[in-house]
């Protein structure tokens, strides 16, 4: 009952206020300390209906951010991704945490976000959860897929409907380059996704190009509707 818990992010001991309730209900939710929780910036206020970005007065059009307006005006991309939901603002703290998680390979950090991911997904209707895959090369380097890890630790079953055929060194490419890139995914089992509502999972939504590529090929292969969830935006 008095087992010391450490914060998964900063490794400091989690101060849990002991109450009578704890005798009856084991409270297992304290994966991170209040300090780290405070450094996570939940996306709030008025947000883009399409991609969750926090909207500014000047840069919007009918509730969409200008990036999404651009996507939806492009006949090549219109209508594939129904909406993206993101949990947190991609601030310095989250940048550092995600870098440790996926580049250093600290899988345990996925669990720090598990309860947030699980809670959000509970309110999103879907038939199949599909993690954005890594290429074989990147998978061998990292040892796990960070998108899948986020879903797994949240207790969710995933289905690997996609295969990545191109390298994902996205961060070094411009928006134009990312969009123009030929399709980077392949659908593995079209029968399974036919007519299904699919929820894609990834760690970060940057330009939205990865998720839209995935949504496009899934829809073209017969999926009914595509939504996505990312940790950061």
């Amino acid at each position: 009952m008095f087992k010391i818990k450490k914060c998964l992010i900063c490794n400091e001991e989690v101060e849990s206020v002991f109450s009578w309730k704890d005798i009856w209900v084991s409270s297992d939710n304290e994966k991170i300390c209040s300090d780290c929780r405070g450094k996570l910036a939940f996306l709030s206020g008025e947000r883009c209906k399409m991609c969750s970005r926090e909207l500014e007065e000047k840069y919007q059009q009918d509730g969409l951010c200008l990036d999404c307006v651009r996507w939806e005006n492009d006949s090549e991309w219109r209508g594939f991704l129904s909406a993206n939901i993101s949990l947190f603002h991609y601030n310095d703290f989250l940048k550092e945490t995600i870098a440790k998680f996926k580049y250093r390979g600290d899988y345990a950090l996925a669990e720090a976000f598990a309860s947030f991911v699980a809670e959000k997904i509970e309110h999103m209707s879907h038939d199949i959860i599909v993690p954005i895959p890594l290429s074989n090369e990147r998978m061998a380097e990292r040892g796990f897929n960070q998108a899948k890890a986020l879903a797994e630790t949240a207790g969710l079953k995933t289905y690997d409907a996609l295969l990545r055929t191109h390298t994902e060194k996205q961060s070094k490419k411009s928006r134009e380059e990312r969009i123009r890139l030929a399709q980077v995914f392949k659908v593995t089992g079209p029968d399974t996704i036919k007519g299904k509502k699919i929820l894609l999972i990834d760690d970060i939504y940057t330009t939205g190009s990865t998720l839209r590529h995935a949504a496009k090929i899934l829809k073209q292969s017969g999926a009914e509707e595509i939504y996505s969830l990312t940790l950061a935006r």
């Binding site: 440790k100 390979g105 040892g143 796990f144 897929n145 890890a149």
Partner: peptide
């Protein structure tokens, strides 16, 4: 964690990650 290199549930050290 489920390690794709060894295909097993593989323990790792978080102290020097």
């Amino acid at each position: 964690f489920p390690c794709s290199r060894c295909g097993k549930s593989c323990a790792y050290c978080r102290a020097c990650i």
